[in-house]
Design a protein around this nucleic acid. Sequence first.
DNA 1: ATCGGTTATATCCGTTTGAATATATCGCTT
DNA 2: AAGCGATATATTCAAACGGATATAACCGAT
Lengths: 119, 119
Amino acid sequence: MTQDAEPRLRILLGSSIAMGPGKADLLDAIGEAGSISGAARRMGMSYRRAWLLVETMNRSFKTPLVQAERGGRRGGGTSLTGAGREALRRYRAMEARAQKTLARDMEQFSKLLNPLSGD
Amino acid sequence: MTQDAEPRLRILLGSSIAMGPGKADLLDAIGEAGSISGAARRMGMSYRRAWLLVETMNRSFKTPLVQAERGGRRGGGTSLTGAGREALRRYRAMEARAQKTLARDMEQFSKLLNPLSGD
DNA sequence: ATCGGTTATATCCGTTTGAATATATCGCTT
DNA sequence: AAGCGATATATTCAAACGGATATAACCGAT
């Protein structure tokens, strides 16, 4: 067994990535964890990186995808906004549609690829 | 008018990008220019960068996509192999198919995006 | 034999990226 | 008032990235 090739979808807005596989996963994790720090922990990334990704997303969209609160019983927390849930849902739909549409092409394309070369 | 969002397709093999918009453009340029250095010039990138991209591609595929020659009347040159032309053709087809399939979704998604934020 | 243009490779350097750490602020809880 | 856990932000440091430059090898043309 070797890993196989994966098609990945990114939504580029100008020079910055508004949405992509990593950011979508982060949104999922924030939704589940209820905080940026919790999401970062379970994704094995630094809080700073997670916070920067969130900042990029919030700047890329009309309405912030993520809403943070400081203090409180649990020290604060972060939740997805309505726009956040919508953007995530739509991205996942596009991702799935792309995967499905390209499945046959990917089969062919994969035959050209070097099964080794994990890099 | 502001720039609008663009969906981009990458083919990931392990941790390295086997094919993507930039590499596909480079293959096109090499095909037209007949050399890595010429392609780099017309794309405004350094020879080093172009050469590294070619190296990554050649490592990612079973058969090299690009064949280089040294010396000779024109000092050498680089041409696409059969595999190179095939990979490029298939990638462009996938790209186009994805664009078409996602056009409607992108319309909706774009409504969520911040028209400013060129970064 | 030298020259030209290219591939191939190494080195240097500034920029960017990202982890690690530290600090301030917030607001509930005790 | 002190503690806690989280956000928000700055600073420091190492690694990765990429441009610029230099050099060697190649080989036909002159």
